[in-house]
Computed example of a mutant assay.
Amino acid sequence: MSPSSPFPSLPVCQITIPSNELINAAYTYTKEHTSQATVNHCLRCVSFSLLLIREFPPLASANVDLEAVVLSSLMHDMGWATTKSLLSNDKRFEVDGANIARDFVNHSASGEWDAHRIQLLWDAIALHTTPSIAQHKQPEVVAVALGIFADFMGPNLPLPGNPITVEKYKEIVGAFPRVGFSDEVVNTLCGLCREKPETTFENFVSGFGKTYGLDGKGGGKEEWIMKCEDNDITKRLMGGLQACKQWED
């Protein structure tokens, strides 16, 4: 670890997390407003993204904006902020996180980031749970989404020639331990089902409520499943078409 960097070295992976005034400020901000489990998750995601950029051919051959990748990965779960005043009452957590990160960079970088880089940051965070879209975006967006997915899959990441070996995985997780991350994922996403249900019906978050209930322990599960059925997008779309027939010839 260099004197100016808050991040440890990762010699097995042969990567170094970039450190500059903006990245260090974002790291401090993330620590102030999220849990240790989330901070460590984000640092693992940064590390996996950097590893994939170096060793996964489609990314290794691209001219990737590393600062944008690091900031996006580092701040991608600001939508889970423990400082609730940062969050909306009506937006998906990914959108909250993207908005928070964009505002942070606009304020902290003092106009040094142009509109394109700001959009990369926003897209990478907003789309990080939607790989079917993210994979068709810019390399930075792809790298962030893959790095985040890699923290859940590790050496089992379904990539051809997956560069995440067991040894590299162990080094990254050893540097940034999970410290209860699995429980936090369940409790956070079930909490979103409970507190902001309208933001979860059309995405993967609702599945946590269906599996773990609204309290993360099975409570309210059956009622939640029924609520999801009532708000199923297929029913809403087809019901809308049926209702519109009254105004059609």
Rank of each mutant, 00 (worst) to 15 (best):
V70Y: 10
G218E: 12
G174F: 04
C244L: 13
V105W: 03
K221H: 11
S110R: 15
I23K: 08
K31T: 12
R178L: 14
A26Q: 02
Q246I: 15
E229D: 14
S72D: 04
E202C: 10
F93A: 00
R178G: 00
F176D: 07
C228E: 13
G147M: 06
A81F: 07
P6F: 05
A175V: 10
D103H: 07
E202G: 14
D103G: 11
L50P: 02
S2N: 12
L159Q: 07
S108V: 14
C13T: 13
L51Y: 03
V39Y: 03
L74V: 11
T30D: 06
I133E: 03
N40E: 09
G191A: 01
G147T: 06
D232G: 09
N89Q: 14
S2V: 00
V64H: 04
P177D: 12
F93C: 03
F176I: 08
D103Y: 01
G154N: 01
N40C: 11
G191Y: 02
C190F: 08
A109D: 12
E195M: 03
P18C: 11
M1H: 15
L214P: 02
A150K: 03
A134N: 01
S85T: 11
A175C: 09
G240K: 13
R236T: 10
L159P: 08
G207F: 08
V64N: 01
N20I: 05
C193P: 00
G79C: 00
E229T: 13
N40R: 07
D232Y: 02
A115E: 15
C228A: 11
G207R: 14
K227I: 06
H136D: 03
